[in-house]
Simulated assay, not measured.
Amino acid sequence: MFKKIKGQLKVSNIIFFIIITLLVVPVTRQPIQVFINKGLALFSPSTIEKESRRQLINYDWQLRDMNGHMYDFESAKGRVVFVNFWATWCPPCIAEMPNIQALYEDYKDRVLFLLVSNETVGEITPFLDKHNYNFKIYNSVTAYPEMFDVASIPRTFLIDKEGNVVMDKAGAANWNSDKVREVIEKLLME
């Protein structure tokens, strides 16, 4: 009996060693992390109750898109806004991007999508091309409004027409869920 357990432990030790090795090797680490985060991104973000919502007061934020065109966040007043802070090297960011693309495809004419990264055009463009993403990416030119308080990425905010933060999610989420779409539809009707 002891030999059987001992033999089983050896197999489990080998499997454990293989998994750890795959997570340490840079070539396999990111795909595994993205896969794990895609599982986590199956869940929809939660909506903040009306009485707990924070209101964006300061719209003083300048952004630049990948073509060098400036965007003044002041122009976002009165619109439903989706703000996502992300990076091409971030596995949870990569995991939620297909959902963001699908949401963007359906709402790009009615919701303002601001996907913000601090990476260069040379880093972002190949990533967008590889995955066939067609949303605009922006770099901050000035500091973003203090209320965003981005300590980790991805960090996403859904803001209503009055500047209230309706959703605030740190980490990967399913932004293309029925729940998110229902919230957006309600916000667009207000």
Score class of each variant (00 low, 15 high):
S12F: 15
F127K: 04
A173N: 10
V165N: 06
N118I: 00
L112A: 13
C90W: 03
L128C: 05
F85D: 12
I48Y: 02
A87I: 02
R54I: 07
R29T: 09
P91D: 14
M1V: 13
F135H: 03
S52T: 00
E105W: 01
N58I: 01
V24Y: 15
I15E: 07
R53C: 02
E185M: 01
G163T: 11
I20E: 04
P31E: 10
S177K: 04
V141Q: 08
F135M: 02
L56F: 10
S140E: 11
E119I: 03
K6L: 14
D178W: 01
E146M: 01
G163L: 04
R79S: 14
L22A: 07
Q55S: 08
R64M: 13
F2Y: 13
N37I: 09
A170N: 05
M97R: 12
F73L: 11
K6D: 07
G39V: 08
L9N: 15
M189D: 02
R155H: 15
I124L: 13
N84V: 09
Q101H: 07
V121L: 11
C90I: 05
V34E: 13
P145T: 08
A173T: 06
T47K: 03
I15A: 13
E182F: 10
E51G: 02
A87H: 05
V81I: 14
V141F: 02
H131R: 14
F157P: 05
A151T: 12
A76C: 02
L187I: 01
Y104N: 04
I153W: 02
S140F: 00
T156S: 11
D60H: 10
R29N: 15
Y133R: 03
S44A: 12
K161T: 07
N13A: 15
N67K: 13
M189Y: 01
S46G: 04
W175R: 06
N176S: 06
Y59H: 04
P98V: 09
L23W: 01
I48V: 10
Q8W: 13
T156G: 07
K38N: 15
K169R: 09
V34S: 11
Q55L: 01
M167R: 04
S46R: 13
Y133L: 04
C90D: 14
Q30Y: 13
G163P: 00
N58D: 14
K169G: 11
G171F: 07
Y59C: 10
I124W: 07
L114M: 11
V27D: 09
K4V: 09
A95R: 10
I124S: 03
I184K: 05
K50H: 06
I48W: 07
K130L: 02
L9Q: 13
D109G: 04
E182Q: 05
E105T: 12
A170Y: 08
